[in-house]
Design a protein around this nucleic acid. Sequence first.
DNA 1: TCCCCATATCGATGAATGTCTATGTTGACG
DNA 2: CGTCAACATAGACATTCATCGATATGGGGA
Lengths: 119, 119
Amino acid sequence: MSNARTLPVLELEAVVPCCPPLTERTLTAQEAERTAAMFKALGDPVRLRLFSAVASAPGGEACVCDISDVGVSQPTVSHHLKKLKEAGLLASERRGTWVYYRVEPSVLAGMGRLLTGPA
Amino acid sequence: MSNARTLPVLELEAVVPCCPPLTERTLTAQEAERTAAMFKALGDPVRLRLFSAVASAPGGEACVCDISDVGVSQPTVSHHLKKLKEAGLLASERRGTWVYYRVEPSVLAGMGRLLTGPA
DNA sequence: TCCCCATATCGATGAATGTCTATGTTGACG
DNA sequence: CGTCAACATAGACATTCATCGATATGGGGA
């Protein structure tokens, strides 16, 4: 179709629209606010383990019951998953009794680009 | 005895030695502790701006006076730079009156690898 | 030597955060 | 229905943290 001409690269970047690579220029206050929220979400050991559990799960998704063994109580797990969701890193979907979490598409690439640049 | 014979390659990687890509497997508690500390350091807007200011500075380094304009007091800037240093993200060196900060080598690549994998 | 500038440290304080127990909600299954 | 399992929410509590003003440190120049 006609709009197939738009650069797909731009659409990809729009999912995590924020900010040039950290090596390009000093971030503005707004950019820093938004981006720091993502790093902050990964800045807790329990959350980082939960995130890596989801990110490494077969099929790209995991139900809470499969990743809850991180040494804290069930409500705490739920609380951390909520934080990761609010930060835009995870998405969740209920299917029957279970709730499945998956990594929000392009988050990994987007954050990676912040650190290492477009290359 | 002579355990000084450890491989230098390992020492190099030891700068950011931690952890496979987040998509590979669930991190151990220890790995998560260490890695989360890095993300946490970037999880504050002021610190993130300071870090990007240093990372994007010409010559790869910046004196504090060049990056202090982030909207907080001078002691607060100093405090955040210390945190970034403790997290292993920045290094500092005094030259005359000024103190210069630079990004610790391999930090950007190391953290990028965590997110996007070796590719 | 004395002052000034750049940066670090100290101590205090209010806000944010991680954790828990208790309880609510939602769907599956007799 | 009633009950159970999976998950979320609410409230409380202790700890951590970001920030500030005051002060210390340390080098350069007059």
